[in-house]
Design a protein around this nucleic acid. Sequence first.
RNA 1: GGCGCCGUGGCCAAGUGGUAAGGCAGAGGCCUGCAAAGCCUUUAUUCAGCGGUUCAAAUCCGCUCGGCGCCUCCA
Length: 470
Amino acid sequence: MKMKLFNTATRTKELFHSINDNKVGMYCCGPTVYNYAHIGNLRTYIFEDLLRRALELDGYEINHVMNVTDVGHLTGDGDDGEDKMVKSSREKKMSVWDIADFYTKAFFHDTQRLNIKYPSIACKATDHIQEMIDLVTRLEEKGYTYTAGGNVYFDISKFPAYGKMALLDRQELMAGARILVDENKKNPNDFVLWFTNSKFENQAMVWDSPWGKGYPGWHLECSAMSMKYLGETFDIHCGGIDHIPVHHTNEIAQSEAATGKKWVNYWIHGEFLLMDTGKMSKSKGSFITLQTLVDEGYDPMDYRFFCLSGHYRSQLMFKRESLDAARNARLKLVKKVKEFSKGEPSTSLGTEAARLLEDFNNAIFDDLNIPKALASLWAVVKSDTISDGEKIKAIFEMDKILGLNLESILDEKDEIIDNDLAAEIQKLVDQRIEAKRAKDYAEADRIRSILLEQGVVLKDTPEGTVWEKV
RNA sequence: GGCGCCGUGGCCAAGUGGUAAGGCAGAGGCCUGCAAAGCCUUUAUUCAGCGGUUCAAAUCCGCUCGGCGCCUCCA
């Protein structure tokens, strides 16, 4: 047990201790399924996947819970906001349920392509309305709520520790920064637990509650579902750094007010992916999805490898140039792995390979220092003294964390080309070999360029001429 | 205005007191009829700038300049 993690709650790197032996309860804020996830969102899920894999390497069994937000996420944090699901539904002329279903599938398709492990439990907010109502009831019984304008609000003045993790007490708001404060609120930071006062007609997603027909506030789902599946106090909660000041702050307030207990031991937040133009924002509409990159010819693994190039707590600038660098490096790695795997893999590691693997693991355990760990990976690749069999074993071991799918890439068949075409190509290759033998280089080059036009590249290796499709 | 973060070779990036990992790109070489691929070698007396602390600083402190994020839905 040697995992060290930067805990936002204490702003320090701490040695991780789980509540129950080798079991870890980890809750990760999931997608809002009113649109596609963009590559910035995906960076966070990749980071969480790396965290999960690292904890597994450290010997823990992970209960990984992720929510799917399919209701209650408003365009503004007040009574005036419209539910994003409803908005999307109206714009796309699909039912809210179909919208949710469509984008949930799209989301998990993306995570699967990025080799992100599927959560132990993926839970939808709309399947847990009762749990949310129960939570609001508990808060109401303890006097943490008030009703105004038909909505139930959380009263932060009753919870003195409000904003402690986010250091909100040390901040002063910029005058006018908060556009449109909900007039029903006693304090601008109070937040809605339950809405009944929807001004939007035909609100499709409403449920009966003790406070009237309505729908839950956004923050509620994470508190209700995490406690249902992980208990009232659990180990890790992660998400994007943007969630610190509002979403996570409110989750902490309502959870700890309800139970009177500490809710989460370790808060781990991932930094943002930035574009040259600034951050990528889902609600602004223009963003890059994984499919965009795939359409441009990148492999999803290129993007994963790109994310590995920066530390999860640092902002990462997305540029095609950087993605190209990541692709080149990854392709080189794959090529090496294929080469090393021609022989039998070793069953054990010699001292140098073992040392490099240990260096790798130590970097991982030091708050997920992937960029540093990668140096050990390349050291294995380039080593003169480690046998190919050991290299393979060590690299596959490292890939359990990196998740580049190196083992299954080996199983991939090279592009299938039908036999007739292969025979045709081989015939030309043979002609060229003949021409070369006769030192008729003009003819040899002519044949080579014919093949190149068909996308076939020739390589004259010491073992003879080989060709491959590009 | 407040809070937080950052500034390391052409690009990305690790390193937070002991004298600069790694990747990409580039250059040179080997190989080749020429290529392609591969391999080898090579690229920061220096870490935005200026002061200070210290035997010793990219690493600590102060100031200056530059960049970013948050304070509003947001990974």
